[in-house]
Design a protein around this nucleic acid. Structure first.
Length: 601
RNA sequence: CGGGGUGUAGCUUAGCCUGGUAGAGCGCCUGGUUUGGGACCAGGAGGUCGCGAGUUCGAAUCUCGCCGCCCCGACCA
């Protein structure tokens, strides 16, 4: 972009800024809100094509390649085998799979005829958000013997998700780069082994990248499966809440988090007299029942919610003071569920929301219910108040054990900070995090549907036990920046910096300056660093600002003044102090610095 | 999908309320002076004011519709 002095010709190869492409910006584009998003653009790493769609410019692409390579190495070290599957999937694969209903609306549809004119007979395609529906049929066809198990396949490539709301640059994009892996084992023990091998590989990956990511217990969501960890980079702008206590080591995603609010040895309260109906005209909220003249504290009320699970209504009971953690309803096993509308509720219970209850004998059509699921914490109420299933009336002295038509108890409430940690009883805390990786022990959900089975040494067939694993590579790129920046720009960890060493030549018109630059670049490269030489005919201030903005870990400054004194300068991006090094010693010092940084990284 | 905002030069934006020649800074081009933390002077190029209708003698400005983008929520394999 900026011209170089054409007078100095250089023998051999040296990466020159003047001939490269790093479009830095002084000002942040208006549509970037958070630091990492602004820096991605200002430092010339990416440019936006459309909402959630980004071009990786040369520098951004280099970082992606480094992330990808580290990921590949750690996955292979963890025993996984790389392959590459298509991005375009026949819709048939998904229709046969277990989650078409839940997944279809966030999937891109690809039309083979173009222009939306696909004839009804022609095949339909989707863009793959993930690849269980492709890998499982493949393994079914290719692997039939226990001798070929276990296997763990991974790939690194582009994924598409029709995110409802893309945001924060690469943080939640429609098109993004992801590593996804799928393990196949003979049994649960093997699957657990594979799972923890991946957990270890993830930990190694994030450590090598130089980003702090913590593993937290997570909800399995639409994926199904039995247990799961998310890898979270702590950051204020993260989308997810992590509930944790550092002393006990407990850490869980908000959707999964539980607390020891209900003591394990809690004895249920005996009934406190007969159930009594009382008039509550116009009272349809917890707060209104809490107020005068009724004065029933929220933690003495039963909150009765009605949902529709796969078309059938079911009830969830919580304490009046608690919130439902909707994701926890996933444990009930419904394919899809949603809150029921008042119109759907009335025929079943006999009243509108605000007067609902699950007291035996008060529901109009209990046979229509798929179940009544009660949060554990209502046992703390013992005897409380709930709706009478008659608009304008409530019931008091309702006893949990005696009166409520509970199918089963579970954990459905949202945990609040300050509640006792389930491990140690210490108070729980909350912080925000960016989800950069996720591992699931899937079980046999997919292998059963797709018939991925193997024969054991007793000639018996069994479904393979699967696991699946994902790392958001492009999201990790941004998380690294979110975690590593200051007022001046990015502060790259050594391992993923686009170039680790910048040779900043302040007077590139001086042949001796460029000759020295070349010697230093060669020394740094020989020691194992990627080196860029800033030979632009810019003022020093511009070059320093750009160097800080882009965030090269090590900056070597060669200037006319320094040359007269016989010194160059060596400065680490993360540190304030500048070391003056005699020219004669410079190549050796630079090589030593590079080796040291590499050893630490 | 609901709520809020916004769209003017490559980027950041003023002008819009109260209709009448489209302005600035950065960046870019030319020349000169500068040269260790985003220099200065002079000159210059660059705009279908998101798109489409309407109101009006006249629309960046008012009205309606559409689209894009951003934020909050819902959602997030």
């Amino acid at each position: 972009m900026r011209r170089s002095f054409g007078t100095v010709s250089l023998p051999g190869f040296m990466k020159l800024w003047s001939q490269y492409f790093i479009p830095t910006l002084k000002e942040s584009p208006a549509d970037a809100e958070i630091a990492s998003h602004k820096l991605l653009i200002r430092a010339g790493l990416v440019r936006k094509l459309g909402g959630g769609l980004y071009t990786y410019l040369p520098l951004g692409h280099r970082v992606m390649q480094k992330l990808t390579q580290i990921c590949r190495e750690e996955m292979e070290r963890g025993g996984a085998i790389e392959l590459l599957m298509p991005l375009v999937h026949p819709a048939e694969n998904w229709q046969q799979g277990p989650r078409w209903a839940a997944a279809r609306e966030i999937m891109f549809r690809a039309d083979s005829a173009g222009d939306g004119k696909r004839a009804p007979r022609e095949p339909e395609f989707v863009l793959g958000p993930t690849h269980e529906e492709v890998i499982t049929p493949l393994v079914r066809a290719e692997i039939t013997s226990y001798r070929d198990l276990p296997k763990n396949f991974f790939q690194i490539g582009t994924k598409f998700r029709n995110e409802i709301r893309p945001r924060f640059g690469l943080m939640r994009a429609r098109e993004f780069v992801m590593m996804d892996a799928y393990s196949f084992d003979q049994n649960d023990d093997g699957a657990i082994k594979s799972y923890f091998a991946m957990k270890a590989a993830y930990e190694a990956f994030f450590r090598r990248v130089g980003v702090t990511a913590i593993a937290v217990e997570a909800d399995t969501g639409v994926m199904g499966g039995s247990f799961s960890h998310e890898f979270m980079v702590p950051a204020e702008i993260g989308d997810d809440d992590v509930i944790y206590n550092e002393e006990s080591g407990y850490a869980a995603n908000r959707e999964k988090a539980t607390s020891a609010l209900v003591p394990a040895d809690l004895k249920d309260a005996p009934p406190d007299g007969a159930v009594e109906k009382f008039a509550t005209p116009g009272v349809v909220t917890i707060a209104a029942l809490e107020a005068a003249p009724f004065g029933v504290p929220a933690d003495q009320q039963f909150k009765t919610l009605v949902y529709l699970g796969d078309g059938k209504p079911f009830i969830v009971i919580l304490r009046g003071c608690d919130e439902l953690e909707e994701a926890k309803l996933g444990a009930l096993g419904f394919g899809v569920f949603r809150p029921a509308t008042p119109e759907e509720i009335e025929p079943v219970l006999g009243a509108r929301p605000g007067s609902l209850g699950a007291v035996k004998g008060t529901m109009r059509n209990p046979g229509a219910l798929a179940g009544v699921f009660a949060d554990q914490a209502i046992r703390l109420i013992g005897n409380g108040v709930t709706g009478a299933n008659e608009d304008g009336f409530h019931l008091r002295r309702v006893n949990v054990v005696r009166d409520l038509a509970i199918t089963r108890f579970g954990d459905f409430r949202r945990v609040r900070p300050g509640e006792p940690d389930p491990k140690s009883g210490a108070p729980l805390k909350v912080r925000r995090g960016i989800e950069v990786g996720h591992i699931f022990k899937l079980g046999t959900k997919y292998s059963e549907v797709f018939g991925a089975a193997y024969m054991d040494d007793q000639k018996q067939n069994h479904p393979m036990v699967m696991g699946c694993y994902g790392i958001g590579i492009s999201r990790t790129l941004q998380a690294v920046i979110e975690q590593g920046h200051d007022q001046d720009g990015i502060v790259w960890p050594w391992a993923v910096a686009p170039y680790q060493v910048l040779v900043c030549v302040l007077d590139p018109q001086l042949p001796e300056a460029m000759t020295l630059a070349r010697a230093l670049a060669e020394a740094a490269e020989a020691a194992g660093a990627d080196v860029l030489v800033d030979d632009r005919a810019e003022r020093p201030g511009v070059k320093f600002k750009d160097a800080d903005l882009v965030g090269f870990p090590l900056r070597l400054t060669i200037g006319g003044k320094g040359l007269k004194e016989g010194i160059i300068e060596l400065k680490w991006r993360g540190q304030k102090d500048v070391a003056k090094v005699p020219v004669a010693e410079a190549p050796a010092r630079v090589a030593a610095a590079v080796r040291e940084a590499q050893a630490k990284a």
